[in-house]
Design a protein around this nucleic acid. Structure first.
Length: 459
DNA sequence: TTTTGAGTTGTTCGA
DNA sequence: GTCGAACAACTCAAA
């Protein structure tokens, strides 16, 4: 690749959730149009509600992309502002007839791209979408009746049958980069190890490490937070530092359990695209009569949940890990979500917002629909309402208590047989871990009663 | 149109 | 402690 400093017309590649150079169809499309300006727009709206770790993750991924581009004679052009203004402006600046993107199927992305597309069109320019953050673009997999799937397993079969193109594994050599003036790439004040190594190279090495050493035990160990047996690829997938196709292409016939997890990401991408309102409203309106608690006591309970001081060790460990690292095991996302909705009777949106603020992998489709699934307002077609028992889940998925003790040091001296229910008792040594803020048995019954009432009032 | 089979992820009880 | 069965009892997808 070479650097082009002439003023000849070229194209713009507007990076969004595709912050990589390999397996990048939109980059290949842009390169056909001439010298490529690599643009990222720092959009305050898209970062609204993002906490410091999530911002740091983005900034470091951008810095890594810039470093990668410089190796090939280019550089990342960052502009702060609204994409509505910035993208047409830069296209005019460089005389680009086309702005290339990977399609974004989130409600915000679709609306934003519609606005940018029409602004570009008034100047005779075009927004060209090539590829997406998914192996199969949302909207492609439909039932025999042409409707989006609402149940995962039939979706999975249809999605697997649909297939995907094999990726181009290397950085294309045919790209000429063009560099124009850039705002600085933001940096963050956090220590180096506050988030994992960012960028495409890091993503590929996390993936190859997991492929070589983690995949074999994944089916057996994936549900054990204490064993930390999951891929940790979600934060990379979120920003497109690696494409799911790159991963799927290297999976073998024995890797179905892991492929299924990637398919969940595809499923929720499809579900959200088919029902954009479900980012903020109940997907299943039959449950919209569900009553949630509000007010000062509800706020106090929410704060206890968010800070990891509910008195239920498995819940608290997970919530503290989220705040400290920006990551949480999926089983614990289900457990903590169940606790918020079914033990504390709070609106799933409050919890979803908290997750979006802190998760490095914050993805609106996965997050909102993961929450809706737990809350019973989403795609789960099961005929009954599951209520997770935080003690049972702890015993089953952290049998020795190692996970809990790591994140709840107050429990360091509590033995395994009591660590998930460390209620004080006269004959036991005291500890400074809080007592449970609610009685799970009581709240479980309360939750089931509320669901029954919601069902009755919707029919 | 009707029917049938099945649905990520649970809990509790009793042998 | 473990395991299998009972319980939850509605909705979707496809035949």
């Amino acid at each position: 690749m070479t650097r082009d400093t002439s003023a000849s017309a070229g194209s713009v590649l507007w990076f969004r959730r595709d912050l990589r150079l390999r397996d990048h169809p939109a980059l290949l499309a842009a390169a056909l149009d001439g010298p490529v300006v690599a643009l990222f727009v720092l959009d305050d709206v898209a970062l609204r509600g993002a906490g410091p770790l999530r911002r740091a993750w983005l900034y470091r991924t951008l810095q890594a992309l810039d470093a990668d581009l410089r190796r090939y004679g280019g550089a990342l052009v960052v502009r702060a502002g609204s994409p509505d203004d910035v993208v047409p402006q830069i296209a005019r600046e460089v005389g680009a007839a086309r702005v290339h993107v990977s399609a974004d199927f989130t409600p915000y992305g679709v609306a934003r791209d519609d606005r940018v597309r029409s602004r570009l069109a008034t100047a005779g320019r075009e927004l060209v979408e090539t590829g997406s953050p998914y192996a199969v673009a949302p909207g492609r997999v439909l039932t025999a009746e042409g409707r989006p799937y609402q149940v995962f397993t039939p979706f999975y079969r249809a999605w697997a049958a649909h297939g995907w193109r094999a990726p181009a594994a290397s950085v294309p050599s045919s790209v000429t980069w063009r560099v124009v003036s850039s705002d600085p790439i933001p940096s963050d004040p956090l220590p180096d190890n506050a988030v994992p190594p960012a960028g495409e190279d890091a993503a590929l090495s996390v993936w190859s490490e997991f492929r070589d050493n983690g995949l074999r035990d994944y089916p057996r160990a994936r549900d054990r937070p204490d064993l930390d047996a999951t891929s940790h690829l979600s934060a990379y997938l979120k920003l497109g530092a690696i494409h799911p196709r790159t991963i799927l292409a290297e999976l073998g016939p024995d890797d179905g359990a892991f492929a299924r997890q990637l398919a969940w990401r595809e499923f929720y991408g499809h579900v959200l695209f088919g029902s954009p309102n479900s980012a903020h409203e109940d997907y299943r309106t039959t449950m919209s009569h569900l009553s949630y608690d509000e007010g000062l006591e509800a706020d106090r309970r929410f704060a206890a949940w968010a800070t990891g001081s509910t008195g239920y060790p498995m819940v608290d460990a997970a919530m503290r890990q989220l705040l400290a690292t920006g990551w949480m095991h999926n089983r614990l996302r289900m457990l903590t979500a169940s606790f918020l909705v079914k033990d504390l009777h709070l609106d799933w949106r409050r919890g979803a917002r908290h997750f979006m603020r802190h998760l490095l992998d914050a993805d609106v489709a996965n997050n909102q629909h993961g929450w809706q699934w737990v809350a019973g307002t989403g795609t789960d077609a099961a005929p009954y309402h599951r209520v997770f028992n935080p003690v049972t889940q702890g015993k089953r998925h952290d049998p020795d208590g190692g996970y809990v003790r790591r994140w709840v040091p107050e429990l360091a001296g509590v033995p395994a047989d009591r660590v998930h229910a460390p209620w004080p008792a006269p004959e036991r040594p005291p500890h400074d871990y809080p007592a449970p803020i609610v009685d799970h048995g009581v709240e479980r019954a309360e939750a089931l009663a509320r669901y029954a009432a919601a069902r009755a009032s919707s029919s």
